[in-house]
Structures are given as C-alpha cells and as structure tokens.
C-alpha cells in the first residue's frame, strides 16, 4: 500500500515535468528533435553548442518559460478551485465562478489607474479577489434552501459586477498610457512569458499553493460542516480564512501573469475526483498536477491548431462549458 502511494505521488510530480519537456518540441519555428535534444544536453553539461543562437533562445528563453508559467498558472487555478469546492461543499464553484478572477483583474486595473505603474497590481489583485469571494459568499447565504446554486448565483453576480468595473476602468483610463497597460495586463497570455514573470507571479502562486497543500487535511474537516469541524476542535473561521486567503493568492498571481482564464479551476478538480476520489488530502495535490498538465496541453494545442495562436480562454471555455452542464445534470444543483 505504501509503495502504491509513493508511486502515485511520484507520478503527480513527474507528469507536469513530462508535459513541460514535451512542449519544448512544439512551436512555429521548425526545430528538429535532434537539435532540441542537443541544446538541452549542451545546457546541462555546460558545454558551448555549435548550433545557432536562435535555437538556444527559442528553447530556453521562449518555450521553457512559457511551459513553466503555464504549469504554474494551471496548477494554481486548479488547486484553488479544488479548495473552494471542498470549503464550500459545492461542486459547482471555482475561482472563476466565485468572481475571484474578475475581482483580481479589476484590482490590477485599478492599481494601474491609481498609480500609473504596475508595482501595486499584485496587492490590489489579491485584495479585490478576496473581496469578491466574500461578496459571493454573503450573497449565497441570503437564501438557504438551495445553497449550492445560490453560491454560484452570488458568484455570477459578483463576477459580472467586477467585469463591468473592469470595462469602466478601461473607459476612464488615459488612452495613451494607462489603457494599453490595462489591456495588456488583462489580456495577458503565456506567449510572451519571461523568467522575470515566473519569479514575480510565481511568488504569490507558490505561496498560495504551498499553503493549500499544507492545510489540505483541514479542508477535509471543514467540508464536513461547521458543527462537525468545531466538535473536532478546529476553529472554522480562522481555517476558512486561511484557505480562502491561500486560494485567492494563488488565483491573483495567475490572473496577474496570464489574464483571466476560465474553467480550469472548475473542471480539473472534478477530473481529479474521478481519478482519486473525494479525499482532499489526495485530491488537492492531484488537482495541482492535473491543472498544470492541462494548461500546458491546451496552450500547445492552441499553438498547433492554427498558425496564429488561438487564445487560451477560448479553448478552456470550449471544454469547460459543456462539462459544467454535465455537472449540473449530475448533481441536480445540490451539494454532495
């Protein structure tokens, strides 16, 4: 049994790495497999390569950071989705559906408006992301007969209010300096990923992710309900707060580097549940790994299908939308 568990965890860590490795072979520039392998070997053995600089630059400066960032963003979105689902005992929620993504996007836009620079964007993104969850939660509590649906409805309201606020921020922004910056931030794509982005966006994402992994067993307890959790000696308010803060931090980091990407946070935890079951102790890391793999996969798909890359959001929505309908049908709008 113990060895099976070990194999499982090794698989969880290895599969995103395998996806990152494979995505080094996908792109517009025609690079032969052998030259890519050569470049990798050169770098590892620290030998100078006698291949053109372009090759090195494409593999190490363009494809590699893009894949790493994709893995981080996908993982962050999926793990926060899984945590929100466990926390609210609601299979229909995720960072996107609770309004965290739009809230964070608005926070980033507001920071650019107020300070005309991008230095405060993360703080604002985090703050407004948190505000959005809180608002969705409070709206969801107003009517208690169908809490699962009400929470989703609350999220819909909150995220459309924040989307409207984003449009408003764009409207009042200075078209020469602020507007392009805001659009650039919100549009964010993995296409121009640099190591610099990985460092800056990676800090909040990594912090949120590790926080969630560290307290994942408490999500199990919290998901049993407030009374049960309290009877086990868990401070529900503090623990809920920590989970929400970590999930919001991870989402805000993801939104800041790659814009709003929907559906990953909803769909990946469910696929995880199909594979490993309902136990959050296993499900949380599984979602992280699946989300990372999925986003790299979708990003590569977008690069392969047409010459001019298809934006990530389109592909994730095409997969996620129908899946959400299936979930609604399966859960009949209740909890589980």
């Amino acid at each position: 049994m113990a060895t099976r568990k070990k194999v499982f965890y090794i698989l969880l860590i290895l599969s995103p790495l395998a996806f990152i490795f494979l995505s080094l072979f996908v792109g517009r520039y025609p690079l032969s497999i052998s030259s890519i392998v050569n470049i990798l070997i050169c770098k590892i053995t620290a030998n100078p390569c006698n291949l053109p600089d372009q090759y090195n630059s494409i593999v190490w400066e363009i494809r590699m950071p893009r894949a790493i960032l994709g893995a981080l963003v996908g993982g962050a979105l999926a793990i926060s989705g899984a945590s929100f689902q466990g926390l609210f005992r609601n299979p229909l929620v995720s960072s996107g559906l609770l309004g965290v993504s739009s809230g964070a996007g608005f926070g980033a836009a507001l920071a650019i408006l107020l300070f005309s620079s991008t230095s405060y964007t993360y703080v604002f993104a985090f703050f407004f992301g948190g505000l959005a969850v809180l608002a969705s939660y409070l709206i969801g509590r107003t009517y208690n007969t169908t809490p699962a649906i009400m929470l989703v409805l609350g999220g819909v309201i909150v995220s459309s209010v924040f989307s409207a606020l984003i449009s408003f921020a764009k409207y009042v922004a200075d078209p020469y300096n602020q507007l392009p910056t805001i659009v650039y931030w919100l549009m964010g794509s993995l296409a121009t990923a640099r190591y610099h982005d990985i460092v800056i966006g990676g800090i909040p994402m990594a912090a949120g992710i590790s926080g969630l992994i560290a307290i994942r067993w408490r999500i199990n307890v919290l998901s049993m309900g407030d009374k049960e959790a309290r009877s086990l000696g868990i401070d529900t308010v503090v623990n809920k707060g920590i989970v929400i803060a970590c999930a919001t931090l991870a989402t805000a980091g993801a939104v800041c580097v790659s814009g709003i990407i929907g559906w990953v946070g909803l769909v990946m935890p469910h696929i995880g549940r199909m594979l490993v079951g309902n136990d959050n102790k296993v499900l949380i890391p599984a979602s992280l790994s699946l989300g990372a793999c999925f986003l790299i996969f979708v990003d590569n798909l977008g690069r392969l299908i047409t010459g001019s890359e298809i934006p990530l959001g389109i592909l994730t929505a095409l997969v996620g939308g129908p899946f959400f309908v299936y979930l609604l049908k399966k859960t009949k709008g209740g909890g589980w």
Binding site: G27, Y29, A191, T192, E309, P311
Partner: peptide, 16 residues
C-alpha cells in the same frame, strides 16, 4: 494573431 482590431506576431515567428 488578431485581437480586437490589432495584429500580433508570435516571438517564434519573429525569430523565424
């Protein structure tokens, strides 16, 4: 890549 009414090129395309 067409986003709104603006055209964008990929980094790999530019290197190509």
């Amino acid at each position: 890549k067409l986003i709104e009414d603006k055209y964008f090129a990929g980094l790999e395309q530019i290197i190509l």
